[in-house]
Structure formats: structure tokens, C-alpha cells
Amino acid sequence: MEPLTPRAVSGRPIDELTLERARSGELTLDDIRIHPDTLLHQAAQADRFGNSQLAESLRRGAEMAMLGDEELMRLYEALRPGRSTAAELREIADGLAAQGMPRCAELVSEAADVYARCGLAP
């Protein structure tokens, strides 16, 4: 599935990002944010390039694309060393899975496992 014209998170097609619209103040931050579908398309491209890890990261990014900035920063903070217990991380993972973010959930639940083994959780 190749999107002919990528859309921003707002739904606005990329060719509507024009100077006229910027001048009139019609464009918002969501008009310059990448759409999850575009990230999935880029992930497929990365797979064809032979880098499945980059593809996976882009797919995780597709899940995160709809998250707010604050929420994203909060999750990052929770993953830093000594911030969260393994149980807290598992709870976060469950929450992500429930929000339809299985890949991010998998990453966080893996962190819960490894942090517990390696003493990175308080």
C-alpha cells in the first residue's frame, strides 16, 4: 500500500503545506507531523533495504506518532535506569498494549524483564 500523497497527522495532504496557508496561519503543528501510515510505509522500505531493526523502530515510531509530546517524554523518562520498578514497567506495557501499541508494549515489557535481571530497576 503506497500512499500517493502522504498526509500529516492532521489528515492534511502534504501538497497543501504551502506558503499561502502558512501565511494565513491556517497550518498547525499537527500539519507538520508525520502520519503513522507514512512511517509504516517507510518501515516497509527499510525492510526492502534489508534493515529489519530500522523497520521495527519505524513501526514503533508509527505507534508513537499519535502520542502527545508530554506522554512520549513521560514514557522515555520511565524507561531510564532506576526510575521504575519491574512491576511498574509491566503496568506501563499493559497500558500500551491496551492502547493498540503492541510493539512499544513489547519493548517496555522486555525492559521490565532485563532491568530485573540486571539490577537496573530500583
Binding site: 524507561l79 535506569p81 532506576g82
Partner: peptide, 25 residues
């Protein structure tokens, strides 16, 4: 690992950040 953690990150927090940048294009 010790230096990684002294840098206030783990491979998982960094991996999250990598995808975080992707999520903003």
C-alpha cells in the same frame, strides 16, 4: 553497562528515544 547507566540511560530507554524521533519524522 556501568558507563551506559552513568549516562542515565539503558539500551531500552535509548531504543525508545530512537523510535520517538522517528515518530516525529
Amino acid at each position: 553497562e556501568r558507563v551506559f547507566v552513568d549516562g542515565d540511560d539503558t539500551p531500552w530507554s535509548k531504543a525508545f528515544l530512537v523510535s520517538g524521533y522517528a515518530s516525529r519524522g
